[in-house]
Amino acid sequence: MIKLFSLKQKKDEEGSSRPGGTQKKASAAQLRITKDLNELNLPKTCGTEFPDPDDLLNFKLIICPDEGFYRGGRFVFSFKVGPNYPHEPPKVKCETAVYHPNIDLEGNVCLNILREDWKPVLTVNSIVYGLQYLFLEPNPEDPLNKEAADELQSNRRLFEQHVQRAMRGGYVGSSYFERCLK
């Protein structure tokens, strides 16, 4: 057992600093995201952009699917990693307007591991694969854009045409989509 009482009767007074003890220590969130990013193993359809390479907590992921409905598109996601990472997942938004059953027009993404199924053992890589999967296999069972989901279920060809039209830039229903072809 530690005998605090006999170990140190008097403590240093406030403000006294030891040599070399002034460098700020990295937070656990910072240490963990550094590790995550250093081990990022991106599929060839994905890339990252760091507006400030010194700030590893805010970055963008770009996905360019090479198969499926969204082939040829270029979709940008913003990642914001908070101080409570990995206890809480990063905040991920889709910055590209996309006609997709699981992404709404405000950029909210319905991916289970971004909310209710997030676990601290998951990494940025897990999210990248999750997002990539959303483009390969849009899931009409869990819709965020209900119109798109219903259409995917009832008329796949029409859905495909609408995805194409949105990616080329144009209206689907009353919503306008910016061109996002590569």
Binding site: E88, N102, R115, E116, P143
Partner: peptide
């Protein structure tokens, strides 16, 4: 933290 599936919340 208590979270609800976004799709449930939305639809």
């Amino acid at each position: 933290q208590k979270t609800y599936p976004l799709c449930t919340v939305a639809n």
